[in-house]
């Protein structure tokens, strides 16, 4: 009864993602935020708990249909946190874990169950959501603004594939610094090619190398700057295929690996293995070996994974709109982003 029409907005979102109508994490984040805004505005909900239930069902829906899609669920989780915060401040009751003293002195009546119906809740949540939206939209620029702190003159920067954030970052740095960029092409998707073309147009000296040349080039590279699809709870990355090898080579030559990530990419999930269904998708093998190969296709297996797992030891720095962080600090960031109860769903 509740199910069908309610979840139609989410199924729309899911189908858009599946059909590649929205591809960028940025667009997904914005769309998710819009979706929840509409939900909060238009749906009838009486208490925070009810609202949270609605949001949680949507998170579950997305997780069932698109296990690797993390941005949408992260945004939703963050919004859950926003709801909790607003509720707490509106009911003027303190939430859990504020301080040891409060923990000891609190009594059962203080424990929040979010079921009070508060009139100001809706508007305060919407205000906060508005701020959040601005944060998402300006996240890219904020990261790019930090570029000159990280890139010096005459450096050789290596990047992999195409990340919108990295592109902006490099272009911003190129305004006052002179440096060279090596782009790893990222076969079989060849995103690196479009990034290289775009950078070269902005007058940055760019070289394109195939994936196999990473180790060879690494001895001359000063920094590796990459974007990622998701940042996992242990500080590891789910990034595009081939980045693990790049990170390993960087470690070998002691080259710092800087990961540019927005806050909506931090997810509270851990991954178990690289081949896990929830972790990786394989795309069409035709990108690796064409149909015209004929007879041998009957007898061989071909894999074309989209993602790669990079363990946290290989990452030097995370840059978000608030500044830089070490991978070991990620757990703390997560606790600021999401509420403990919302981690596992």
């Amino acid at each position: 009864m509740l199910d069908q029409e309610n979840l139609s907005d989410v199924s729309n979102l899911v189908s858009d993602i599946k059909h590649k109508k929205i591809y960028n994490s940025f667009d997904v984040a914005l769309k998710t935020e819009d979706l929840l805004e509409k939900l909060i505005l238009q749906r009838q909900w009486k208490s925070a708990r009810e609202l949270m239930k609605l949001v949680k069902s949507r998170i579950k829906f997305i997780r069932d249909d698109l296990p690797t899609e993390a941005t949408a669920t992260n945004v939703m989780r963050h919004i859950l946190k926003i709801i909790r915060e607003e509720y707490e401040s509106a009911s003027k009751k303190k939430g859990e874990g504020q301080s040891l003293h409060q923990l000891v002195t609190s009594n059962s009546s203080d424990i929040l169950d979010y079921s009070e119906s508060l009139s100001s809740l809706r508007s305060s949540i919407l205000d906060h959501l508005g701020e959040y939206k601005v944060e998402i939209e300006s996240s890219c620029d904020n990261i790019a603004a930090q570029a000159s702190e990280h890139i010096h003159m005459d450096e050789m920067i290596m990047t992999v594939g195409k990340s919108h954030t990295v592109e902006k970052f490099l272009k911003c740095a190129a305004k006052d610094r002179n440096f060279k960029v090596v782009v790893v092409e990222g076969a079989p998707f060849y995103y690196g090619h479009s990034l290289a073309a775009s950078l070269a147009k902005s007058n940055i000296q760019t070289t394109v190398i195939p994936d196999s040349a990473v180790f060879a080039m690494m001895s001359r590279v000063n920094k590796v700057i990459i974007g990622t699809h998701t940042v996992l709870a242990n500080g590891g990355l789910r990034a595009s295929s081939g980045i693990h090898a790049v990170a390993l080579a960087a470690k070998q030559f002691s080259v710092p690996v800087v990961v540019l990530s927005h806050m909506y990419k931090f997810t509270p999930l851990y991954v178990v293995s690289n081949n896990h269904e929830a972790f990786n998708i394989c795309a069409s093998p035709a990108d690796v070996i064409p149909q015209s190969a004929g007879k041998i296709l009957n007898d061989i297996e071909v894999y074309n994974p989209i993602f790669d797992y990079v363990p946290p030891e290989l990452v030097t720095l995370f840059i978000s709109h608030q500044g830089g962080n070490a991978p070991s600090y990620v757990y703390r960031l997560l606790s600021e982003l999401y509420h403990q109860d919302d981690y596992d769903m």
Binding site: C282, A283, S284, P285, A286, D287, P290, Q291, E301, V302, N304
Partner: peptide, 28 residues
């Protein structure tokens, strides 16, 4: 060409081959 794929189940053989191809993600 490339990863674009098209085929129809017009006979059992095509059924067999398309099942395999669907499973191996050729029709991603």
């Amino acid at each position: 060409q490339g990863s674009l794929f098209g085929g129809a189940v017009s006979s059992w053989r095509m059924y067999q081959s398309l099942s395999q191809e669907l499973m191996k993600k050729w029709i991603h």
